Simulated assay, not measured.
Amino acid sequence: MFRLSNNLIGVLNFVTFLLSLPILGGGIWLATRGGVTDCEKFLQTPLILIGVFFMLVSLAGLVGACCRNTLLLSIYLSVMFILIVVLTVFTVFAFVVTNKGAGEVTSNRGYKEYRLGDYSHWLQKRVENSKNWARIRACLSEAKVCQSLRESNQTFDQFISDNLSPIESGCCKPPSECNFDYQNATLWTAPATDANSSNPDCSTWSNNQSILCYDCRSCKAGVIANAKDKWKKIAILNIIILIFLIIVYSVGCCAFRNNRRDNDGPVGWKGGYA
């Protein structure tokens, strides 16, 4: 009777192999499609690498379990162990670097204001790096994150009561403390006096619709706040994945033990291990 653990590892890796196909296909499609934006180009290489990685690991686990190949199964288990360690480290790191910082509630505003200094130094350094920010800025511009605000035609009272996203609040308008006069959501007039020049974002703001506050510290803070929310969700998902991987790793260890017993046992002998 074929071992239960070998069967289970085989089925799980067959499913993983099938899941790797659309990931790899998506990366190849982005790489070969014309008119790809810089943001999409940034995604294509990771997608291809992730797709190839899961495909090879799945094949190693599938062949190792179903064909009772001890070498391939040992490679599979080694990769799984490394993956468990990496995910554990990343999950802990994600909770640590996203623990600090939050948007500040402003009086009579439905949205929050975001300050770069409120967040962890590691995240600040990532967005303040000129090369990183040039890529992020290009993505914000290509995604037209401020276009919906520009087309909303809201009155000032409607605008300040709106629940803006961190990126909209930080990148599409000047900080409230600058006391700019509202024309529309993405068009503001500087006050006659320069009383708030201590905030560099007040002078960085531009009514040029391709610039706006994309170079403001508040925009960088808004990007971090948006990433922080996603990182926390990913960290929670990682915990679920880790539990699943540990279970699969344990079953894989049973399959590995079965393979060794079969290879060490007499020819033609079949056991009934799990």
Rank of each mutant, 00 (worst) to 15 (best):
F180C: 10
I224N: 02
P200C: 13
P191T: 02
T186Y: 10
F180V: 05
C178N: 03
N208H: 07
V223I: 11
A192D: 02
Y182P: 00
P175F: 00
S206A: 08
T189P: 15
Q209S: 15
P191W: 01
P191E: 00
P200I: 10
D201N: 10
A190S: 14
A190K: 12
T193C: 11
N208P: 09
P200Y: 08
T193I: 11
I224T: 03
K173T: 04
A221F: 09
K220V: 01
A192G: 04
E177C: 05
S197I: 06
S198D: 14
T193N: 14
T186R: 08
T204R: 15
I224E: 00
W205H: 05
C216R: 03
Y182Q: 02
D215S: 12
S169R: 08
P174L: 07
I224Y: 04
T204Q: 09
S176F: 05
G222S: 06
S198Y: 06
N199R: 03
C178Q: 01
D181N: 09
W205V: 02
Q183W: 08
G222E: 04
D215A: 15
L187H: 07
N207K: 02
P174Q: 06
D215T: 12
R217M: 11
A192I: 01
S198L: 15
C216S: 05
P175C: 00
T186V: 13
P191C: 02
T189S: 07
S169E: 13
S169V: 02
D181S: 03
E177K: 04
S169A: 11
S176K: 07
A185T: 02
N208E: 12
Q209K: 08
C219G: 12
F180H: 05
D215H: 10
A225I: 08
P191Y: 02
C171K: 09
P174I: 03
N199M: 05
C171Y: 06
T186K: 11
A192H: 02
W205I: 05
G222V: 06
S206D: 08
Q209P: 06
S218H: 15
A225N: 03
R217T: 15
T189A: 05
C171H: 06
D201F: 12
N196S: 08
S203P: 14
D181L: 00
I224P: 01
K220A: 01
T193P: 15
S206I: 01
N208G: 12
I211N: 12
K173P: 04
